[in-house]
């Protein structure tokens, strides 16, 4: 464990809590893409199946349960509890175009071909594009509430910090995982235009307006 991965996990946890808190407090999921949240739940479910087969540390196990529980709780709030506020018209990204290619790629490019490892690889590829429905929705509505942009900033920062963690681990342990690194770079690049808008606008108190 290193400071980059620790702060990355913290940013990830903060993002999830910001979103859950926002939906719970405002009793509304307006502006939130339920599809991205479904993809995240799928990412954690397929990645954390190893909870039953291997033990890394109490921290690792605890965080996996937290990510699983919060992602399903978020889906419950969006699709059940506050489904009247779910914005169907703007949350229209075809997620099958993200799931199927990720699965196909995981079957082709993986570290070794067995059930858990292919699912882990699938979750890595899917996570790199899971935010697209949310970014697509923000671009369709042309704006995002500031709290949603804080959520996106924290979520984007988590994988950017993981890149620093991978550099650190390669430098100190000689350990690297090319699949996670390439997907992580793609994932972070997808946030770049958002990061630019966030830093130039939201931090100056303006609303996040995306060129529609």
């Amino acid at each position: 464990m290193n400071i980059f991965r620790l702060t990355g996990d913290l940013a990830h946890l903060i993002a999830i809590i910001i979103l859950l808190h926002k939906i719970w407090k405002s009793r509304s999921c307006a502006g939130i893409s339920g599809k991205s949240q479904v993809l995240f739940a799928l990412v954690y479910t397929t990645r954390y199946l190893d909870l039953v087969t291997s033990y890394v540390s109490i921290y690792n196990t605890f965080m996996k349960f937290v990510f699983l529980a919060t992602s399903y709780a978020t889906i419950y709030l969006i699709y059940v509890k506050f489904k009247a506020t779910y914005d169907h018209n703007h949350d229209t990204f075809r997620i099958e175009f993200l799931i199927l290619p990720s699965l196909a790629l995981a079957l082709l490019i993986n570290h070794y071909f067995n059930f858990l490892e292919v699912l882990w690889t699938f979750s890595i590829y899917l996570e790199s594009v899971a935010i697209l429905p949310q970014l697509f929705m923000v671009s369709k509505t042309g704006e995002a509430e500031s709290i949603t942009s804080h959520y996106l900033f924290a979520l984007g920062s988590y994988r950017a910090l993981y890149i620093l963690n991978w550099i650190y681990r390669y430098a100190t342990e000689g350990h690297y995982d090319l699949i996670a690194i390439v997907a992580g770079v793609v994932q972070t690049v997808l946030y770049c235009d958002f990061f630019y808008l966030y830093i130039t606008k939201v931090l100056k108190g303006k609303k996040l307006q995306l060129p529609a």
């Binding site: 991965r5 570290h111 995982d177 996670a180």
Partner: peptide, 10 residues
């Protein structure tokens, strides 16, 4: 990538 290497990252 050794067969037994488990993924230790979240």
């Amino acid at each position: 990538f050794s067969n037994m290497e488990l993924h230790d990252e979240l």
